[in-house]
Design a binder for these strands. Structure first.
Lengths: 229, 229
DNA sequence: TAGATTGTTAATCGATTAACAATC
DNA sequence: TAGATTGTTAATCGATTAACAATC
């Protein structure tokens, strides 16, 4: 369990390992090899070993990984049981969807309140979470020690809401609005960039339809098509 | 406008440039420099020039980029005006939110129908889009030449829905379910991995609180903290 | 022309993969 | 012990950045 320096991309893969392992049948074998994990997740097997070695020592030569230990180590590293107090800003369709989603608690995200400019919404609750006026955002964050802010507001409102969160002492922001946000050093803004994802899908369709018009693409080309896997 | 080989990461940044440029004031100067764009989006300015050069020749030494030309070139490359016929599978909270979101059309994503297993939902419409039984998914895709499938189903249902889309000839899948999906070569599965994003946020909070317990992190450290920007 | 700004070629950096050593 | 599988060190690959050449 070295855990010294972990790369950003490794960190992003860890939850995938964890959820894959948790989905394994209860009555299956207690061990699993890096090769098996790699095949299931379509990753390189050396990469799997390296990723896992950075947070766990559950791997034993000839045996593989003891699944239960590996799950425990991944959960420990990813902060299972940690409670990150969270607010959500912007109770539109997407905000409502995220407010209603129960699965975030597993990852330590506990939404304690939502905020909106719409006075018609203020005062009601969604999924037992109160909707408060956005003016109270900084003071609420300060008073409740809020650690994460989720932004599901329109692009035009995002920067000011981000600043309000920062003013309230929030140091981690999950931004679903389609804009780049400025925040001081020490505050992490993680952007969920839907447009980027769509660009990849759309480019894939465009380039593949051109290619397949001439000759069907083989699997080698398909993999290498855009920067490789 | 070289457009020969474009890297995956460049492709992902292009929509950000486009939306930033479109948000610029109408009555502002007609030109902008790479340095100005880089500062606004917190990117390297060489990176901005390289990215833009791969899809546009709107840059002129001493002048910068003619904004209107640059927008046109970006739109053209990203396939503005293209209509990718899309279905959405899984009309839960998230599915509803995405169905109701009008902004996707700008990126060529046109949802023509939604599918669900819940017979109570089947027959109704959301945002003028009919909800159909999931059994009809492959035939509907085949008959309507569906190009993109959006998966907002629970993890347990995702692989079979993915296979149904593939059976219907869909070659681009946007997966919001928290599982890795298997698809044949030539079919792109783009996963929107919320758990990965949460892992980054949560790790940031964990490591920063440890550090700041001893000594406040400076901005240099903050940037380098996890694999650099 | 001189200066500012773009585009490109070479160097660096980070992540992945291949080769190998360690070990149960 | 021999063999399978892990972990690590070195090589490769891709993306970013620095240095420079081109040009309006």
């Amino acid at each position: 369990m070295a855990s010294g320096n972990i790369s950003r991309l490794t960190l992003q893969r860890l939850p995938t390992y964890l959820s894959y392992l948790k989905g394994l049948p209860e009555d299956g074998p207690p061990n699993i090899s890096a090769a098996a994990i790699a095949a299931a997740l379509e990753l390189g097997e050396v990469q799997v070993r390296k990723d896992l070695a950075s947070v766990s020592d559950a791997g034993k030569p000839k045996i593989g990984y003891l699944i239960s230990d590996l799950i425990q180590d991944l959960e420990h590293f990813l902060g299972s049981g940690v409670c990150n107090r969270t607010v959500l800003v912007g109770v539109g369709n997407l905000g409502l969807a995220l407010l209603s989603y129960a699965g975030f608690a597993e990852y330590g995200l506990h939404i304690v309140a939502a905020f909106d400019v719409n006075t018609a919404l203020v005062g009601s609750t969604v999924n037992q979470k109160p909707i408060l006026p956005v003016e109270e955002l900084p003071s609420f964050c300060r008073e409740h020690g809020i650690q994460i802010g989720v932004l599901t507001v329109p692009a035009a409102a995002a920067q000011s809401c981000c600043s309000a969160l920062v003013a309230g002492g929030v140091r981690a922001i999950w931004n679903f609005a389609p804009v780049h946000l400025q925040a001081p050093p020490g505050v992490l803004v993680q952007r969920e960039n839907m447009a980027s994802s769509l660009a990849l899908l759309s480019y894939h369709l465009k380039t593949q339809s051109i290619t397949s018009g001439k000759i069907e693409m083989n699997s080698r080309q398909a993999e290498k098509e855009i920067g490789g896997k």
